[in-house]
Nucleic acid binder design. Structure first.
Length: 863
RNA sequence: GCGGAAGUGGCGAAAUUGGCAGACGCACUAGCCUUAGGAGCUAGCGGAGAAAUCCAUGGGGGUUCAAGUCCCCCCUUCCGCACCA
C-alpha cells in the first residue's frame, strides 16, 4: 500500500504489533472486532454530518434514483420485519450512491391512527405525546442501524404542516366532484368504534380486529370517487412490469371489472295473471355476463335485501318470514366465520317475471347466494350453463334448458356446460346458430333497440369511504351551515388544526364532537353560526401521497414544487410488505392519478418498480407478540452489532422469501465480520514495495476478487439475491485466509494486497456500512466510502485459466478432469478418453455417441 | 372450490440457460491452541457400504446422451380470492 495509506490508526496498530512480537496472541487480541465500540463511534460521526445522505438538487440534472421503503407506523419499537425491509433498501441506496446516482432515500412516520388513541385510553397519555415519543425512540433505533436516511426530509403525518395538505387535497377533490357526501350502508367496527373502508374489511371482519365482525350501518359519510379511475387503475397494471405479478393480480381482482348486460324482466304479479289490474308496474333488472344464455333462463333470483323482495314480502307474511330467516342465517354464518360454507337455498315468491327475449314466464325466487351489493342484486338463473344455478335447479326441481353446444360435437355436452367462446347457440330463437361472442353483441344491440336492456360494466371496487369517527386523524375541512349547507373551509384558513387535550372515549361518536371550541364556528359563506365536520380522515389518506412530500418537505405554500416531482418521479424502487398490495398501493395509485389531473405532476403511476419482501418468521410462524416468538432488533444489535444483524437479514434467505430468524446465524455473520476485520487489519500494515513471488496464487486471488465484483454488481441490477452476494464475499475472504495460511503470504505483491482489500471493503459497504467505514479509514483511505466509486470488474483478471470438465459415461459422473481454459473440444474429448477411470468404463464397449458441451461437460454413451 | 408460490442434508439455503446436486452459513463430531473466549485454528459432516460402488432434490410416470430444472398425474404447506352471476 502507498505510504499515504499508512497514516493514522494503521501506524498506531503497527507499533502495537511490534511491541508485542513475543506475544502474538496479545496482538490478535488487539485486533478484536468490537462492533459495540466501532458502531456508536461512526454513528456519532454520521449524525454530525447532516449532508451525508442528502440528495443533490433536482436542478443539477444528474441521473436520479428514488429509493423508498414504506414508512412505518410509530408503534415505539422496530421489529424484524422493519429491519429486513430497511436492510434491503439501504443496501440498494448505498449501492446506487456508489454507482454515482443522485439518490433520494427518505424516511417518515405514518403517525395518525387508532393505536395512539387506544394507548391514550390505557395509559392516560395524549395521542400526540405518545406518538411523538415513539417516533423519537424509533428514530434512535434507525440511526443505530446505520440506515442512510436523509433526516432533513423527514415527514410526520400527524403534524399540521403535513396534514394541512391532506385537507388541501380534500378541497381540490371536493371542487372536482371527487370528494362527496352520501348516505350509505357502511362497515362499522364496534371495536374501533368507527367506519371502515371496504378495503379494511377482511372476511367480514375488521382488519385490526380479526375476530370482530363488521356491522352494516346506514350513515352519511364522505367518499372519494375512486371508481372514476377504475378502468385506468386496472389497465395501468399492464404497464407496470416492475411490479410483482401477485400484487397486480390482487389489484385486478379487487377492481373486479366485468363486462356484461343489464336486462329488464317485467314482473307479472299473480293477481295480474288472474285477470285483475295492478296499478304499479314492477321491473327486475338482472346483470349477466352471459346474455347469450338467456334463452336458457328458467328463473329469476333475487337477493334477500332486494327492493322487489321487500315489496313482495310486504304483502306476503310467509315470504317475509322466510326472507327474515334467510338473513338471520346469513348473519349467524358470518358470525361463525363460515359464510363460504353456507348451503344454497331459496324460496319461491309465488310471482313470475317475463323474459323479454322469448316472452317466457319464469318464476321469481329469493336465494341466499345472491349478493345484494354486486351487479343489481338480481340474476337470471341459467342452470344448464352455470354451476351454481345448476345446483340450485337440481335441488328445487327447476327446469334446465340447454341453449349452448360445443361447436362440431354431435353428442350433447354434459351439464352444466360452461360454454367457452367457441360454442354455438341452440334453441335460442333468431339467435340459434350464432357463436357465443357474436350472440352477446347482437342480443345487446336488440335489447338497447327495444329498450329492455343494455351493455354495461360493473366493478367490485366501490368508492373509498374516508370518514372516521375517531380523534387522531386529519380533520375534514368542511363546515355545515344551516343556511348554506355544506361549505368547504377556504384554502387560506387551512390547516384546520386538530385540537389538543381532547377526552378520548370509545362511545358517543366522534370525540371532536365533544369539543365545542372546535365544533362551533362561523360559516365561511354567510358568517353565521355553523358546525365543523367532526369526523377525521382515514389514515390511508396520509400514506397515499407522503412520498411526494419528502422531496419538498418544508414547502409552506404547496404540497411540493412541481419541478421537483418532474425530476424525482416516479419512484425508481419501492420496497415493502405484500400486506399493502391492495389498500395502500391502490390508494397511492389513485392519488397519483388525481394529482396528475390536478396538474401537479406528470407521472401516471407512483412507482416504476415495487418489491415485496418476505415475512420474518421464527419457529415456523410470523413473529408476533401473541405467538411470543418476537426477537427485538435492539437486543440483536447490542449482542452482535447492527452490521451483523442487518447482514444476517440479507444473508439468511433471498429477500422475496420468508426468512427464518435463527440467532446462531447472526452469531455466524458476526464471526465472519470479525474474520474480515482481523484479516484486513493484518494486511493494513503490509509493506509498500513487496514484489510477487507467487504469481499464479496471486492471479487466483485477483480472479476470485473480480469474479465477486462482477457477481455482486450484476445481482444488484435485478436479481437481488443478496444471500449469495454475501456468500460470495465470504468465499473471497476464505480464499484470502487460506492463501495466507499456506505460508505464501509474504509473497503476494503490495499492489495485489491493495487491490484486494480496497475492493473487499467497497463490496462490504452496502451490507455492513459501519465495518466498511471503519476499515476504509483503518486502511488509510480518505473520504466517505459512500461517495467512492463502486468497483468495476476486470474481465481479463476474472477469466478462468483452467477448466474443470466433468466427464460422464452414460450420463454418470466418472471423473472431473482439469484442462487449460480454451482447449478445443476434440483435444478435451481425446484426453478424457485416455483417462484411466474413463477408459476402464468404455473399453470393450461400443461407443454410441460422444457429447461435448464446450467448457462444460463431456459425456460418452456406450453400449 | 378457484388462483398463485413453494416442497432439496439435522437447520437456513445454493445450483441466472437442461450439463459435477448440496456453494455459503448454522448445528454437530474429532483434534490443536489458549491469558478459558458467545474466541481462534485444522479436519470431517446427505444416506448405505470395509471398499469399489450404489441410492438420493415431496410421490409416481414421461421426454432426453443428460432432469432439482421441461411435460403429465398425485400429495403436502403457505398466501391470496372465496357464492362477483
Amino acid at each position: 500500500m502507498s505510504s499515504s495509506e499508512q497514516s493514522g490508526k494503521t501506524a498506531a496498530n503497527h507499533d502495537h504489533l511490534d511491541a508485542n512480537t513475543q506475544r502474538p496472541e496479545a496482538a490478535e487480541e488487539a485486533l478484536r472486532y468490537t462492533p459495540g465500540e466501532i458502531e456508536p463511534r461512526w454513528q456519532q460521526r454520521w449524525d454530525a454530518d447532516p449532508g451525508l445522505y442528502a440528495a443533490e438538487s433536482h436542478a443539477g440534472g444528474k441521473p436520479k434514483f428514488y429509493c423508498l421503503e414504506m414508512l412505518p407506523y410509530p408503534s415505539g419499537q422496530l421489529h424484524m420485519g422493519h429491519v429486513r425491509n430497511y436492510a434491503i433498501g439501504d443496501a440498494l441506496a448505498r449501492f446506487m450512491w456508489m454507482r454515482g446516482y443522485n439518490v433520494l432515500h427518505p424516511m417518515g412516520w405514518d403517525a395518525f391512527g387508532l393505536p395512539a388513541e387506544n394507548a391514550a385510553l390505557k395509559n392516560h397519555r395524549q395521542p400526540e405525546e405518545w406518538t411523538l415519543a415513539n417516533i423519537a425512540a424509533m428514530r434512535v433505533q434507525m440511526r443505530r442501524m446505520g440506515l442512510s436516511y436523509d433526516w432533513s426530509t423527514e415527514v410526520t403525518t400527524c403534524l399540521p404542516e403535513y396534514y394541512r395538505w391532506n385537507q388541501w387535497f380534500f378541497l381540490k377533490m371536493y371542487e372536482k366532484g371527487l370528494a362527496y357526501r352520501k348516505q350509505s350502508k357502511v362497515n362499522w367496527c364496534p371495536e374501533c368504534a368507527t367506519v371502515l373502508a371496504n378495503e379494511q374489511v377482511i372476511n367480514g371482519c375488521c382488519w385490526r380486529h380479526e375476530d370482530t365482525l363488521v356491522e352494516q350501518r346506514n350513515l352519511e359519510q364522505w367518499f372519494f370517487r375512486i371508481t372514476k379511475y377504475a378502468d385506468e387503475l386496472l389497465d395501468g397494471l399492464d404497464k407496470l412490469p416492475g411490479w410483482p405479478d401477485k400484487v397486480r393480480t390482487m389489484q385486478r381482482n379487487w377492481i373486479g371489472r366485468s363486462e356484461g348486460t343489464l336486462v329488464d324482466f317485467e314482473v307479472q304479479r299473480a293477481s295480474e295473471s288472474a285477470g285483475q289490474q295492478v296499478s304499479e308496474k314492477q321491473t327486475i333488472t338482472v346483470f349477466t355476463t352471459r346474455v347469450d344464455t338467456i334463452f336458457g333462463a328458467t328463473s329469476v333470483q333475487l337477493a334477500p335485501e332486494h327492493a322487489v323482495t321487500k315489496a313482495f314480502a310486504a304483502s306476503d307474511p310467509k315470504l317475509a318470514a322466510d326472507v327474515a330467516a334467510m338473513l338471520e342465517q346469513q348473519k349467524a354464518a358470518r358470525e361463525a366465520g363460515d359464510i363460504g360454507a353456507i348451503e344454497k337455498h331459496g324460496v319461491f315468491t309465488g310471482q313470475y317475471a317475463v323474459n323479454p327475449f322469448n316472452a317466457e314466464r319464469v318464476p321469481i325466487w329469493v336465494a341466499n347466494y345472491i349478493l345484494a351489493d354486486y351487479g343489481t342484486g338480481a340474476i337470471m338463473s341459467v342452470p344448464a350453463h352455470d354451476e351454481r344455478d345448476f345446483e340450485f335447479a337440481e335441488k328445487y326441481g327447476l327446469k334446465i334448458v340447454r341453449v349452448i353446444q360445443p361447436v362440431g360435437e354431435t353428442e350433447d355436452a354434459e351439464l352444466p356446460f360452461l360454454a367457452e367462446d367457441d360454442a354455438v347457440l341452440v334453441e335460442s330463437g333468431v339467435f340459434t346458430g350464432l357463436g357465443c361472442v357474436d350472440a352477446q353483441k347482437k342480443m345487446q344491440a336488440l335489447a338497447a333497440e327495444k329498450g329492455f336492456g343494455k351493455a354495461t360494466t360493473t366493478y367490485r371496487l366501490k368508492d373509498w369511504g374516508v370518514s372516521r369517527q375517531r380523534y387522531w386523524g386529519t380533520p375534514i375541512p368542511m363546515v355545515y351551515c344551516e343556511k348554506d349547507g355544506i361549505v368547504p373551509v377556504p384554502e387560506e384558513q387551512l390547516p384546520v388544526v386538530l385540537p389538543k387535550q381532547v377526552e378520548i372515549t370509545q362511545q358517543g361518536g366522534s370525540p371532536l364532537g365533544r369539543v365545542p371550541e372546535f365544533v362551533n364556528t362561523t360559516c365561511p359563506k354567510c358568517g353565521g353560526p355553523a358546525r365543523r365536520e367532526t369526523d377525521t380522515m382515514d389514515t390511508f389518506v396520509d400514506s397515499s401521497w407522503y412520498f411526494y412530500r419528502y422531496m419538498d418537505s418544508k414547502n409552506a405554500t404547496a404540497p411540493f414544487a412541481k419541478e421537483k416531482a418532474d425530476y424525482w418521479f416516479p419512484i425508481d424502487q419501492y420496497i415493502g410488505g405484500v400486506e399493502h398490495a391492495i389498500l395502500h398501493l391502490i390508494y397511492s395509485r389513485y392519488w397519483t392519478k388525481v394529482m396528475r389531473d390536478l396538474g401537479l405532476i406528470e407521472n401516471d403511476e407512483p412507482a416504476t418498480r415495487l418489491f415485496t419482501q418476505g415475512m420474518v418468521i421464527r419457529n415456523g410462524a410470523k413473529m408476533s407478540k401473541s405467538k411470543g416468538n418476537v426477537v427485538s432488533p435492539d437486543e440483536m444489535i447490542t449482542r452482535y452489532g447492527a452490521d451483523a444483524t442487518r447482514m444476517y437479514a440479507l444473508f439468511a434467505a433471498p429477500p422475496d422469501r420468508d426468512l427464518e430468524w435463527q440467532e446462531d446465524g447472526v452469531a455466524g455473520v458476526s464471526r465472519f465480520l470479525s474474520r474480515v476485520y482481523r484479516l484486513t487489519m493484518r494486511y493494513a500494515t503490509y509493506p509498500p514495495d513487496v514484489k510477487s513471488s507467487a504469481p499464479a496464487a496471486e492471479a487466483d486471488l485477483l480472479r476470485k476478487l473480480h469474479q465477486t465484483i462482477a457477481k455482486i454488481t450484476q445481482d444488484f441490477s435485478g436479481r437481488w439475491h443478496f444471500n449469495t452476494c454475501i456468500a460470495a464475499i465470504m468465499e473471497l475472504a476464505n480464499q484470502v485466509t487460506a492463501f495466507e495460511q499456506s505460508k505464501n503470504a509474504d509473497k503476494i505483491s503490495s499492489a495485489a494486497v491493495t487491490e484486494i482489500f480496497h475492493n473487499l471493503i467497497l463490496l462490504l459497504a452496502p451490507f455492513a456500512p459501519f465495518l466498511a467505514a471503519e476499515l476504509w479509514e483503518q486502511t488509510g483511505h480518505e473520504g466517505v466510502i459512500l461517495r467512492t466509486a463502486w468497483p468495476i470488474a476486470n474481465i481479463e483478471l476474472a477469466r478462468e485459466v483452467a477448466m474443470e470438465i466433468p466427464v460422464q459415461v452414460n450420463g454418470k459422473l466418472v471423473e472431473v478432469i482439469k484442462f487449460p481454459a480454451g482447449l478445443d473440444d476434440l483435444a478435451v474429448k481425446e484426453a478424457a478418453k485416455l483417462h484411466e477411470k474413463v477408459a476402464a468404463r468404455i473399453s470393450g464397449k461400443q461407443l454410441v455417441k460422444e457429447i461435448i458441451v464446450t467448457g462444460k461437460l463431456v459425456n460418452f454413451v456406450v453400449k
